[in-house]
Structure formats: C-alpha cells, structure tokens
Design a protein around this nucleic acid. Structure first.
Lengths: 172, 172
DNA sequence: TAGCGCTGAGAACGGTCGTTCTCTAGTCTA
DNA sequence: TAGACTAGAGAACGACCGTTCTCAGCGCTA
C-alpha cells in the first residue's frame, strides 16, 4: 500500500511534468524506490499504471476544487479563484487529462475513457452551480479554455477574463 | 519540393491522427514514398520535421478560418460556424498545437514556441473582430474550450453554446 | 542448523526508435 | 567507353523501450 502510493506519486510527478511516453518504467522505479518486479506486481502494465494515475488525480483534483468552492459559498466565481491558484503553482503544465488524451487518446481506449469520465464529472459539478444545462456547458468551455490558455501562455491572468465572463453568463 | 510536400502531408496525417511519438520516421518514409536518406536531407531531424509540420498547419488553419470569417461578413459567430464544420470532419482529434504542446512542450522549446505563436496569432485575428482586448481574451477562451470539449466528447454540438456565449459577450 | 520461499537488484530480452552507412545502379561528362 | 558523381533502398547502429528472468540473500519453520 505504501509502495503503491510511492509508485503513483513518482508516476504522477514524472508523467505530468514531462509527458507519459517521455518517462520510462526504469525512471519510475528509480524515483519511487520500488523494484521493477514489485512494480509489475502492483500494476500489470504501464498502461494500467497510467490509468490508475489518472483515476487518482481525477478524484483528488475534483475533491479539491469542490471543497474549495463549497467553502467559499458555492458561487461560480470560486471555481476560477481555485483555478488561479492552480495555474500559479510552479510547474503548472495544463490539464493532465487533456495532455494524456492528446498523447494517447488515439491508441488507448482506456485512457480515453478516464479522460471522458473526468470531464463528465466536472460538468456535473458545474451543473450544480447553475440553473440549466446550457450554462453548465458554457461554464465548462470557459474552464477548459482557461486551463489551456494559461498553460500555453505560462500566465494565469486569463483566468480573470474567464471569471468575469462566467459571472456575466450566470447572472444573465 | 514535391517530395517535401509529400513528406509533410504524410507527417501531418500520421502525427495528427496518432500523436507524434507514436509515429516513427520509418512510417513517414513508407507513407510518403521518400527514402530515409532524402528525408533527412530535407529535414535534419524529427524535431525539425515536427516544427515544419506545425508551421505549415498553423498557416493553413488560420488562413482557412479567416477567409471563411471574412467571406461570411466578419461577424464573430462565423468563427464558430467554421469550428463546427471542422469538429464534424471524420478523424477530428482536437487541436494539433494543444496536443503537441501536451506531448512535447516540456522537452522541446522549439515546439513550445510554434504553439505559442499559433495561439498568439489566433488571438490577434479574434482581436480584429471585437472592440477591446478583454473581449478577444474571452473569445479565445470559448474557442479553445470548444476545441477541447468537442474532441473529448467526440461531439461538435458544444459549439452552439460557445457561439451563443460569444454573441452574448460581444453585444454586451 | 537445514531447507524453503520470498524479495530485490539489475541483467537480459526482443522490439523499436532516430539516425547513419553501405552498396548498388544509373547518369552525365570527356 | 571510362570514370566520377548522384540517389535510392534498406541494412546497420547504438540507445532505449516495456517486460521478464536470474540469482544471491534474507527471514521463516521444523
């Protein structure tokens, strides 16, 4: 269990920072300190490890976002305040799910499924903050747009426009 | 010249469909019909080929978008009509630049630079359609969001909400 | 203490990657 | 015709990939 966590921590760090195909199992072994044999007992293949990495990140990411939003009173604007903090973290490199989808979506149905699930769940959370499906769609567009633009510009400030646009559409 | 085009056509097709690291130079050789030796005379490395592929796609993509928008009268909504057509093409797999950035951005400054340039230029085009920078930012967020969500959902219909939101923010 | 099973480190395996080299065949000049 | 140059096909190279295997060393039980 502690080893599984060590492997997932190492995998998440390396995969997110450098991309999945750029990281070999050997490097995960070295970083986690878990032997290759044990690593393959815990995860039968690299793809399985990737899927578990994404699943764990999905849960943690959504839990963190929604806990923050509730703590702040459940207003839509809080979503973007949370995003701003995330974008400002050193090493921010966009959304792990979008990145994984771009890299492996064409060849790995398992990865595609996790990514799709993550975005569906995110939509569901946003849906709870507004009063119809269309607004949830528009909110999702602003969130995804902000994630992508902040990553490519290496600048979290777009989130201000995203937040302002979101508040306008909610009140409208 | 005709060979260069053959190589770039093959590379673009393969890279976009399956991801860059998933495609080897051998497959580009086979698909293009250009020998490996000549291929390396035309492009000194795979990274150089990737950069050329992105540069060519950047120009073609933006030219196509802006020509369409102008033809339709230069209204913001036309951007999203063009996007809808693009999303509906078979084999649509999101934005080549976002995907390349996620896959190689961490390891290739050259790729990062082309991606950033592409998005900057896109922002510039959008800026011409509205009357201030903030609206161009918000438009870009909706465009990027639509590109990502349509790809992951495999459904072009989000573009309707993107278009409606864009028209609301422009008139507001 | 003798023998057994489990563990870990890392060597080894087959395959593929990006890149370079070899070698053959053809074309042009003198 | 002889010889120098080019270009093509694809073998070869070294590195590294994901995955499996070997084997020495450890803690158990009797």
């Amino acid at each position: 269990m502690v080893q599984e966590t060590a492997v997932l921590d190492a995998a998440e760090h390396l995969f997110y920072d450098r991309g999945i195909q750029a990281v070999g199992m050997d490097e995960i072994r070295t970083t986690s300190g878990v032997s290759l044999k044990r690593l393959y007992q815990l995860f039968p293949s690299k793809e399985a490890l990737v899927v578990r990495y994404l699943e764990r990140r999905d849960k943690r990411w959504r839990d963190s976002l929604m806990a923050y939003v509730l703590r702040e009173g459940g207003e839509v604007g809080a979503v973007f305040d949370w995003l701003y903090q995330w974008f400002s973290e050193p090493g921010y490199r966009g959304c792990a799910f979008i990145n994984s989808f771009g890299e492996l979506g064409a060849t790995s149905p398992a990865v595609t499924a996790v990514v799709r699930h993550h975005k569906d769940e995110l939509w569901g959370h946003l849906r709870e903050l507004v009063d119809d499906d269309a607004k949830a769609d528009r909110l999702l567009l602003l969130v995804e747009g902000a994630i992508v633009v902040a990553a490519i510009r290496q600048d979290p400030d777009v989130v201000r426009q995203a937040k302002a646009a979101a508040e306008a559409l909610v009140s409208g």
